[in-house]
Amino acid sequence: MARALHPLLLVWFLLLLLLTATVAASFLFSGIVGFAIGVSIAAVKAGLIYWRYMHLDEEEPLLRIAALAAAAWLMILLVFLCADDLTRAL
């Protein structure tokens, strides 16, 4: 009978696959499409790290909601930062 991979090793392997996808996408796509693909892959990698390495899969639902709210708040701040930077004169 085959033994299943340890969950940490599985997530690590998925992160390596996503890293190769990021490198491949940087060579294949450029412009806004490449940026969108890169940010999407980065969000998936951050989600995997949040879920497994920060042990959110073992925590109670309230802590999961707090972590999701913190990530959402960070994204809101980054969007406003980009909007501020784009509206300033050079």
Rank of each mutant, 00 (worst) to 15 (best):
L74Y: 04
L16A: 11
S30W: 11
P7A: 03
G34L: 00
L63V: 14
L19S: 12
A24S: 14
D57R: 04
I49V: 15
R64G: 02
T20Q: 10
R3L: 14
A67S: 06
A66P: 00
L56F: 04
F27C: 08
L8M: 12
L63I: 13
A67G: 05
A71W: 00
G47A: 06
L48H: 00
L74I: 06
L16I: 07
A83W: 08
A21C: 13
A83K: 10
E59T: 13
H55Y: 13
G38T: 02
I76S: 08
S40V: 05
G31T: 03
L9T: 07
L14V: 05
L62I: 14
L90H: 12
A66D: 05
P7Y: 04
T22Y: 05
P61R: 03
V79P: 01
M54N: 12
F13V: 13
A83E: 10
I41M: 02
V11N: 00
R52Q: 14
G31K: 03
I32R: 15
L74R: 04
I32D: 10
L62C: 08
S40Y: 06
S26G: 09
F27Y: 08
P61S: 05
F80E: 13
M75T: 11
W12D: 05
A67V: 04
L77G: 06
P61F: 02
E58K: 15
A43G: 06
F29L: 13
S30R: 15
T87K: 14
K45Y: 02
L78C: 10
L48A: 01
S26M: 10
A24F: 07
R64V: 06
L62E: 15
R88V: 11
L19G: 09
A89G: 08
I76Q: 09
L16F: 09
T87E: 14
L8D: 15
W73H: 06
D85F: 12
R52E: 05
V44G: 01
L28V: 14
R88T: 07
R64T: 04
L15V: 02
E60I: 08
D57F: 10
W51M: 03
P61N: 04
I49C: 08
V23A: 10
W73T: 09
M75V: 13
V39W: 12
L19P: 01
A72H: 03
L68A: 15
H6W: 09
A71C: 08
L77Y: 06
E59Q: 15
L48F: 02
Y50K: 03
S40G: 11
L78H: 06
I41C: 00
L68I: 11
R88D: 07
L19V: 07
